[in-house]
């Protein structure tokens, strides 16, 4: 299968602290990949490196053949673990903003999802709850026809009903050329939608396997395996 993302010897240090240590990783197209690991294992660092928000200390990243930059940002859709919109913006302002900058943004798809989740396009972000803001942000990110979706803790703050809907949109939205990289602690919730899992610990990749392999070889669910591998 064709490579979508490849990193070689990827290392990121913050002062004396090593967040990622010589990571070699390849992501293929058409997969939903869970990036799983305990707090501080390097999940967010890896995703930020893929999006060019951090510069690697050493090593290389290649997304669709290019290092992170304007070209890769056209095809990578990123949901950070924090809210990045101004509170004075209305939902329509954000829709306009995404239409302006992302050629692959599908405004109708976004409007449909907003309507489905009962979010008013004329509402200001400042008057929304944290969970609603997260929904808006996720809708924006998933309304792009990107090739790589990087979702950092996408379902942490939303209620279980919306969680199901969001996971459903993630599955239905992406195509065989695209992959979705989801980092989360809520493994049981997303286990059923995952094709592959990556276990990451202390900046090292512990395991990169398909969910089917894990079930066949280990005879247990990803959630159970995670608890076993990362037992405290």
């Amino acid at each position: 299968m064709e490579q979508l993302m490849n990193c070689q010897g990827l290392t990121k240090r913050f002062g004396y602290k090593t967040a990622l240590d010589g990571v070699n990783l390849t992501l293929e197209r058409g997969r939903i990949i869970g990036l799983l690991g305990p707090n501080g294992s390097g999940k967010t660092t890896l995703i930020k490196l893929l999006n060019g928000l951090l510069a690697p200390t050493s090593g290389t990243i290649s997304i669709n053949g290019s290092a992170p930059g304007p070209e890769t940002k056209k095809i990578v859709s990123y949901l950070p673990e924090r809210t990045y919109f101004n509170s004075w913006m209305k939902v329509t302002d954000i829709l306009n903003f995404f239409c302006d900058f992302y050629e692959d943004f599908d405004r109708n798809r976004a409007s449909d999802m907003l309507r489905r989740l009962g979010i008013d396009e004329n509402e200001r972000l400042g008057s929304m709850s944290k969970g609603t803001k997260e929904k808006v942000q996720l809708i924006m990110v998933m309304s792009r026809d990107a090739q790589l979706y990087c979702l950092d803790e996408p379902i942490g703050g939303v209620d279980p009903a919306a969680r199901d809907y969001i996971l459903q949109t993630i599955i239905t939205n992406y195509n065989e050329n695209a992959s979705v990289l989801i980092s989360t602690h809520l493994i049981a919730d997303i286990e059923n939608v995952l094709d592959d899992v990556i276990f990451i610990e202390n900046g090292h990749i512990r395991l990169h396997a398909s969910v089917d392999e894990i079930r066949e070889q280990e005879g247990k669910s990803v959630d159970a395996l995670f608890r076993e591998v990362f037992r405290c």
């Binding site: 924090r82 101004n86 900058f101 992302y102």
Partner: peptide, 13 residues
């Protein structure tokens, strides 16, 4: 700051 997460993931130099 947080807004940079949006600005620096735009396909812009």
């Amino acid at each position: 700051t947080d807004e940079g997460y949006l600005m620096h993931t735009l396909p812009v130099t």
